[in-house]
Design a protein around this nucleic acid. Sequence first.
DNA 1: AAGGCGTGGCT
DNA 2: TAGCCAAGCCT
Length: 335
Amino acid sequence: MYDRRTDALRDWYATQARDLPWRVPPGSDTVPDPYRIWLSEVMLQQTTVAAVKAYFARFTTLWPTVRDLAAAEDTDVMAAWAGLGYYARARNLLKCARAVVADHDGQFPESETDLLTLPGIGPYTAAAIASIAFQTRAVVVDGNVERVMARLGAIETPLPAAKPQIRVLADLLTPDERPGDHAQAVMDLGATICTPKSPACFLCPLRDDCAALKLDIAECLPRKMPKAAKPERRGYVYLARRGKTWLVETRAPKGLLGGMLAFPTSDWSDRPIPAAPFDAHWQERGEVRHTFTHFHLTLKVLTTMAPGNPDRGRFEALDPDALPTLFAKAHKLVT
DNA sequence: AAGGCGTGGCT
DNA sequence: TAGCCAAGCCT
């Protein structure tokens, strides 16, 4: 019926699909909940399944429906996202939930085009939701699909130039029937067998059709341009404790760690300028090191219990779980 | 349109 | 260990 590669993928997925909390099993007649599919897809952007599971469970417990999430306080949602990274996703998650309630009567739109208009939903996520949640044929292309297709077709053009070729092949293999199962099959294959390093080609349902395997270049594909080295930055972070409260602030709504709970810091640069939030005897307690997407950071951790009027932030009871990892490391160092 | 944007696990 | 990498989106 379909390309034999599509059939092989479907047969493999029928028995090898991973059991995931947001997933409807292959071939099932159960109707997926678009809210849970959307939530999982946003959490899975650039993030591993293992990291997502606990957050998905927490979010669906706290906010079982898109209306519940839309009605949530921003601070509660940001706190629940703390530690998962890429915090613009959490800000857009709330914007999207509120748009679905305000503009779509609480129902996610079904078409790829309409989904694409929502905050935090790009080409991949729109295609994933359309196919997985609504059984609409859509060409789903993520990092896994890129890798599987590049190998299957021995596409030697480096990324991102290879994207058009990859998309053509992905489109060719996408069936009209159960396109959501197909998309998840390719992604599961990429995550478990057609892995970036040491792919398990001997277990692959596509081994007889894989051009890269025939050429013995599977592990070299897809080719990528080398990444620039990360620069080193330094700074100071100030942890002021007053009884059971700590001096914290909410970071600016955009940019790095935007909207997240934080401790006051200096600038982060080659030669940071100390910037204590108030005059006091600040005691050096050590350093924390953290690597972001595009730079390494070392923060000197300073504490005081002396009184003073801070020029920024507020003293409040601290929930350490609401801190992004960088600040959780600093907090852990002094407690 | 190229770069900003987190984190933890793996090798 | 230090780098590489993961179900991308936004500007």
